[in-house]
Design a protein around this nucleic acid. Structure first.
Lengths: 371, 371
DNA sequence: GGTTCTGACTGGACCGGTCAAGAACAAGGC
DNA sequence: GCCTTGTTCTTGACCGGTCCAGTCAGAACC
């Protein structure tokens, strides 16, 4: 075979026109043979298809078809960080599954917009061919989200940021956090510590003040904080005095680090509120390492109820949200949006879609140790 | 502002031409303002960009640009199953990360082609706009892979199936499996059981014969089996007599189920070779439930060395492969392929890219129990 | 036999850009 | 003064399809 090279073989991609010429029919007919079988006789259609196969023509060019039909057959996902990070995060993973569920129902592709170190660069958002975007947990003022919105293509935001006129799927983080904190207050706890997810994009990890919370560009984190604060306030606890540790990334290592700080404080907390389950699991690991028994010596609670929460030892008290459903709902909201209509003409539909949450009490929280 | 509604405002997507007309310049100039700044004076460029912003024009239409430039800015991934399944599988997850690493380096999107229950339907493969495909662990004769190949766009296969002229990134499964089985033989084991991943797409789970292996459309599974068989053969063990249990899906539950079968056999194996780590971990779970101590009563080995393998109790003996690197290599192979040249003209480059593997001996394998 | 209808196929505008080639004009070199 | 060079912008073809508005033949109807 090696010697049979035909250097002049015109492999230049065949077009529908070439095929039409070859068959002596019109372009339209060839197009119809592929895309609208009812528009020509079965006999001719077979002939066209056979000729196409023989010529090595694989069907209408995707890009040209998209341009004409204005449908890309894919939806875009914009993530706060790079995809590898998201793949390590069970919360994003579940969300992804939900989105994928909807995509596969509709036979749509799922296109992850590159983020990574270039997350600040919105240009790629404008370059991809999609029928809509799902923007997940982006900071307020995200350039990429702005770019997506500017494209005038249906866009659904998951979690944050909430923008007027932009469809959003979220949960009531504040009330979830409040319920959780109330649960701990009810168990007699008075000395709390809070392990927060990031409030800024600066990569800072360490103790922070409430000013940083107020200035945060991450609404979810703020809402959860506010929920805690509300419950503690009700109990007459001075929220300003509650130690607060921010973690740049939501993983066990950061949670352990935060616990290291909180458990080393003079007034050691008897209960730690972690804003995510992974942080909470990290806290429990550190507590164990410090010879503290959970929940006897220390109560720990998370948020999200990822699979690992139920498997943790002890099983983690947390706030359950239906992450997969959230992804599915977001995608459906996107896909069922009034197609082709002026996006500004249909703001009647509620642009806020709220999913239920539920306090899940497990073994990681218990009565406050006396004294 | 609210009352200033202009109901006849032609929100119909602005084009480059509209903008050009509005500014009294040519289409090309507007296009250049966005895509080739060096082609016009900075002053005019600023004017164009400002006008665009004012008019709500977000930049050149992605589809039209793609059609003209013939670049989609994304690479397609074809998975053996649906994306949600892949997201649950750490092997696919790591691979994904590697692919994503390469995509983000190049600022490319990552488009997952819908699979799911429609995996047999190759049409979506032809509808998406991509610059190339990565096909992962597809069964021989996959219609979707055929469709990708027919599109005449660069395509790289990961693991399987190996096809002449198609670039492939894989590992030497047979020799990895052989080394692993030799390790167990060296520990004195003579009675083996094999837990296999699927050989067919029929969803069957249960004991199978070697005929089914020979007829398999999954080359990886066959290679691993052959590797085991080679090592056991060397040791004079009759491979035909070694019990073989096929699992439709590679997860702990199936592994446990397989173990249930194998451990219930009259001639109970002293060593179980599982074709994936998750299956192996499932086997260990079942062994524990059956009050068998690993590795004292039973040795268990896996394949792939996922993160969970090192964390398992006991830590799992397995064959390490660099999954993330595999994904990265596949993507680089795809992206660095001679662009635009006739795919048939450059078969000089090795179309087989083999990654190293390594036997990792941990605590789950030990000397065969005497008697 | 004339009209209407139906089914099968065609012509050409259009989707919204990019790009090679060229025009217009100023500056520089000899 | 003329030719070259360069910069800046324009013209018009092209990317590869889809789809609307026909044309044309034959069947059906009265």
């Amino acid at each position: 075979m090696g010697t049979m090279d035909e250097p002049d073989k015109p492999r230049a991609q065949l077009t529908i026109r070439d095929l039409a010429a070859r068959l002596g029919v019109s372009k339209t007919t060839v197009s119809n043979a592929f895309s609208r079988p009812d528009q020509l006789s079965a006999e001719l259609r077979d002939r066209v298809l056979a000729a196409a196969r023989a010529a090595g023509y694989a069907g209408p060019d995707a890009m040209a078809r998209m341009l004409r039909t204005r449908r890309a057959g894919a939806i875009g996902v914009i993530l706060p960080e790079s995809l590898p990070f998201a793949l390590d995060d069970p919360v994003a993973g579940e969300l992804f599954k939900g989105i994928a569920d909807a995509c596969e129902e509709r036979r749509l592709g799922l296109l992850v917009v590159p983020g990574g170190t270039h997350a600040a660069d919105p240009s790629t958002v404008g370059q991809v061919a999609v029928d809509g975007f799902i923007a997940y947990a982006l900071p307020r003022g995200s350039r990429r989200l702005e770019a997506a919105l500017a494209r005038n293509v249906p866009t659904v935001v998951v979690d944050e940021p909430r923008l007027p006129g932009v469809a959003t799927v979220a949960v009531d983080n504040a009330s979830g956090a409040r319920d959780l904190a109330r649960h701990l207050v009810g168990l007699g706890h008075r000395r709390f510590g809070i392990v927060a997810m990031r409030f800024q994009t600066d990569g800072y990890t360490g103790p922070v003040t409430r000013e940083r919370v107020s200035a945060s560009i991450y609404e979810c984190a703020v809402a959860r904080f506010d929920g805690y604060a509300a419950a503690l306030g009700e109990a007459g606890i001075d929220i300003a005095a509650v130690p607060l540790y921010e973690c740049a990334h939501s993983d066990e290592a950061h949670g352990a680090q935060a616990a290291g700080y909180l458990l080393g404080l003079e007034e050691r907390p008897t209960a730690i509120l972690a804003m995510t389950d992974r942080l909470a699991i990290g806290v429990m690991g550190a507590a164990r390492a410090a010879r503290l028994h959970v929940p006897r010596d220390l109560s720990v609670a998370g948020f999200d109820d990822i699979a690992a929460a139920a498997h943790a030892r002890p099983a983690l008290t947390t706030v359950r949200q239906e992450l997969r459903l959230k992804g599915y709902a977001a995608a459906r909201l996107l896909l069922d949006a009034p197609q082709g209509t002026d996006p500004a003409s249909a703001p009647a539909a509620a642009d806020e879609f709220s999913l239920p949450i539920e306090l899940v009490v497990r073994r990681s929280t218990g009565p406050a140790p006396r004294r």
